[in-house]
Amino acid sequence: MSVDFATCAESFHGLILRSLGRDFGDRLLPRGLEINVCDQVFLIASGLVWNVYLAALALFFGFFLATAIALAKSSETRWLRSPAEAFVFIFRGSPLFVQFFFVYEALVLLPRAGIEIGPITLDTQWMTRAWAGALFVLFLNTSAYTAEIFHGALKSVPKGDLEAADAYGLTGWTKFRRVTWPTMLRLAWPSYTNEAIFLLHATTLVFFSAFPAWQQMGDALYYANYFAAQTFNPFIAYPIVGLYFVLMTLVLIGGFGVVNRRLNRHLPRAARARLRFRPHYIR
């Protein structure tokens, strides 16, 4: 499989943005014997856009919902606590893969013409597409896991910190914003990093579940699987996608490490929580 520079440049132009649609590159994907290594490297790389997009937005929105659910779960009011507990149980207790299938099938049951609320008709069709529907599932899923992490951290906020806040006359929202929340975040951050890695990896499931690929726009693993099926050779495409994910995981750990240092900066050096590339599997 010798590949010269010119064909490689051609692959780059045709495929590097292909996952955004056929208007952004070759109309048809390379097939069968036409496939060379450069095609695989660039097309799989182009699919990473989807993984990053899904993971980043789900994490961002999930962060806020998770904080709310963690607070609700810690609440003493029963009608706040029970729904929060049920939500966490459902999304942590069942496989994400099955959640994708179920939610997709539920979304396609939405009325075809859209939902009418007074004079406005809400179009619902776009919800069945991966960029919206799968993002929605990932968002709910990561919210549940993150809420559990935040809930645990809330329970371990040192009593002394809270008493000190009281002594300074901080109450309500101010106390939460200035003392409880930052401490919770600091305690939760190593586990939260772990959750972010899990979520990034979970984005590879989207196009293997019920969400259809439009115009062969898919994520990195969708393309890796495509190549493995076309060439009947798993030894090129899968290692490439694996390597990409190792790199992305390292970048993610680096980014979360920066935040971690910031969250810990007021502590004496010895007491700071360290983030390392050490695998731990709490999910």
């Binding site: 396609v108 069709q125 069945t128 597409r129 690929a213 062969q216």
Partner: peptide, 20 residues
Amino acid sequence: ATLIEFPTADETIAAVRNGT
């Protein structure tokens, strides 16, 4: 036209029914 692909034939019918 815009192509949308499904792994089974049955799902293509469902896609037409639900407007996808």
